[in-house]
Computed example of a mutant assay.
Amino acid sequence: MSVRSLAALRRTDANTADYRRVTMFLHFLSLWPHIFPVVMCCPRSVMHRNLQDRNGTSIRFLAVGDWGGLPHPPYSTPVQQATARGMGRAAQDMGADFVLALGDNFYFTGVDSVEDPRFQETFERVFTARSLHVPWYVIAGNHDHHGDVRAQIAYSRVSERWHFPELYYELKFGVPGGPGPTLTVLMVDTVLLCGSSDDFADGGPRGPADAAGAGRQLRWLRRRMEASRADFLLVAGHYPVWSVAEHGPTRCLLEELRPLLVKHRATAYLSGHDHNLQYLEESGVGYVVSGAGNFVENSTRHWAHVPPGALRFFSGQSSPLGGFAHVEVTQERMVITFIQARGSSLYRASLPPRGVNLFAAP
Rank of each mutant, 00 (worst) to 15 (best):
H27R: 07
T16M: 00
V327F: 04
E226Q: 10
P249K: 09
M40R: 14
V296L: 13
E246Y: 09
V149G: 11
G56H: 05
T250M: 10
R258E: 12
T122Y: 00
F106N: 04
E166P: 00
T337W: 11
L183R: 05
V327I: 15
F338V: 09
P179Q: 10
L234S: 03
V306K: 15
G293L: 13
T16G: 03
G207S: 09
S345Q: 14
F61A: 03
L260I: 05
I339G: 09
F232N: 10
R54F: 03
E124S: 11
V111L: 09
T250W: 07
L351M: 15
R118W: 03
F108S: 14
L102M: 08
H133L: 09
W32R: 12
L183Y: 00
A140Q: 11
L186W: 01
R354W: 03
E160C: 00
P74H: 01
G323P: 15
E166R: 13
D210N: 12
H146N: 13
Y269S: 08
V126A: 06
S271Q: 07
E297I: 14
G207Y: 07
V327L: 14
L183K: 04
P308L: 14
R4W: 02
R251V: 02
T267M: 10
E160G: 05
S196H: 01
P353F: 12
F232L: 11
A341F: 11
G88F: 02
L254C: 08
A266N: 04
W162T: 00
H247C: 05
S76P: 02
L26S: 05
Y155M: 04
A14H: 02
A230D: 01
P165I: 03
N142Y: 10
N50R: 13
V262D: 02
Y137A: 10
A7R: 01
T109W: 12
N298R: 15
H273N: 15
F314A: 08
M334L: 15
V46I: 14
H27V: 06
F232A: 11
F338K: 12
E124W: 06
G95M: 08
A101V: 01
R118C: 05
R348M: 12
P179D: 13
A268C: 10
M40P: 00
V241W: 05
E328K: 15
F173C: 04
L26K: 07
A140S: 15
D112C: 06
P78E: 10
M87H: 07
L102P: 04
E332D: 15
H275Q: 14
P208G: 07
Y347K: 12
A63H: 03
G203S: 02
M225N: 02
H34K: 11
A349G: 12
W162L: 07
H145W: 14
P117E: 09
R224D: 03
Y75A: 09
R224W: 00
S271G: 09
L233T: 09
G207E: 07
L260E: 03
M24K: 07
P78Q: 11
D66Q: 06
Y239G: 04
K263A: 11
M187W: 01
M47V: 04
A230W: 01
N15V: 00
K172F: 00
E170Q: 14
Q317H: 11
R11L: 10
A211N: 01
F123T: 06
Y19H: 11
D231I: 01
R216I: 00
G355P: 01
C42D: 05
G355T: 10
G213R: 05
I339D: 04
